[in-house]
Amino acid sequence: MTGDLTPPPPVQLCYENVNGSCVKAPYSPGPRLLLYLLFGSGAALAVLGNLLVMTSILHFKQLHSPANLLIASLACADFLVGTTVMPFSMVRSVESCWYFGDSFCKFHTSFDGSFCYCSIFHLSFISIDRYIAVTDPLVYPTRFSVSVSCMCVASSWVLSVIYSFSVFYTEASTKGLEDLVSALSCVGGCQMAVNQSWVLINFLLFFIPMLLMTTVYSKIFLIAKQQARKIESQSNKTAKSSDSYKDRVARRERKAATTLGVAVIAFLISWLPYFIDSVIDAFLGFITPTYVYEILVWIAYYNSALNPLIYAFFYPWFRKAIKLIVTAKVLRQNSSTTNLFLE
């Protein structure tokens, strides 16, 4: 009988010689390597892809426009997710431990929230920009100027950073959860509990802009259909000739709206499961298993790597810009004046 009794495997801790250390739940070497490759490739794609977007827009003069300024700033938010959030979350997800200290844990969580809401606000302003561009493309340049775009960029960053850092650094999000926080606190952990009130506020800050964007893009596509039918129905060649510039501008703006509409849908699909789970979790006593939470978080993170792929698929100018950057042709004199548009 005694021969059948095997001692239980020793409990692994994040910090073996520290009292109150979190329990470590390591993966076996094979899955561990695969997860590092999966998460690491996502972070690398977010960094390199968004760096290409920013470089393209900032370098080529043809891309210096109010709309592209918003896209470059959005790419900056996604780039920062790839540099300041994803690498540390990767270690936490794979090793099941946080090795970067309590202070940086708060910074990391605040960065995470800041860049998420910054993306939401940018996408909201971009949807308004596209609506103006599609409904009245000839008047659009005077209505959405560089100064207006800069105001949108500044307000997106300031509001999102102030909100996220104030919520986590004042510990307002943990009010009423002191017992839970105390029970879950251990050395090597980095999970910020958020109470029901702040979970609802977080969800509304996500849901209301997304509802606005969905409504705006629905109107844009209806208008785009009407414009397309109007252009097709024109039979007078003289009218076509005199209106060709307006038609060409309208067509370009509709295409840009379609591309950014796809980016909004991708953002919605990536982040909505996480926000829904956070609400359910807060009201049902934080029942989400750790592995489910990590899956939802990484689906959301991967959105930062997705936007450059969307631009590369829909924008010929972006593919051309990438080719010029990768082949180092941007180092040539006057490369900033290269014509990137086919039209």
Results as ranks from 00 to 15, higher is better:
Val94Tyr: 01
His108Val: 00
Tyr99Gly: 13
Thr55Ser: 14
Phe104Ile: 06
Leu48Ala: 13
Asp102Met: 03
Met192Ile: 06
Ser114Met: 13
Tyr311Lys: 10
Val264Ser: 00
Ala172Ile: 04
Ala183Arg: 12
Phe207Met: 07
Thr2Ser: 13
Met213Pro: 00
Val249Asn: 05
Tyr311Leu: 15
Val187Thr: 14
Leu200Ser: 09
Gly40Thr: 10
Leu284Glu: 12
Phe207Asp: 02
Leu309Thr: 10
Tyr315Arg: 11
Glu253Lys: 07
Cys152Pro: 04
Gly285Glu: 02
Ala172Lys: 04
Asn17Trp: 06
Phe115Pro: 08
Ser103Lys: 13
Leu34Thr: 13
Leu38Tyr: 14
Met151Thr: 09
Ser242Asp: 10
Val264Ile: 07
Ser166Ile: 02
Thr109Asn: 06
Pro141Asn: 09
Glu16Arg: 14
Leu63Pro: 02
Met54Arg: 14
Tyr36Asp: 13
Tyr15Val: 03
Ala266Tyr: 08
Pro273Leu: 04
Asp112Thr: 11
Lys237Cys: 09
Val134Pro: 00
Phe165Cys: 01
Phe313Tyr: 15
Thr259Gly: 03
Cys97Val: 04
Gln62Cys: 10
Lys225Gln: 13
Lys323Leu: 14
Phe318Cys: 08
Ala133Glu: 00
Ala256Phe: 02
Leu205Trp: 05
Asp78Gln: 15
Ala72His: 12
Asn202Tyr: 07
Ser114Phe: 10
Pro10Asn: 14
Val199Arg: 06
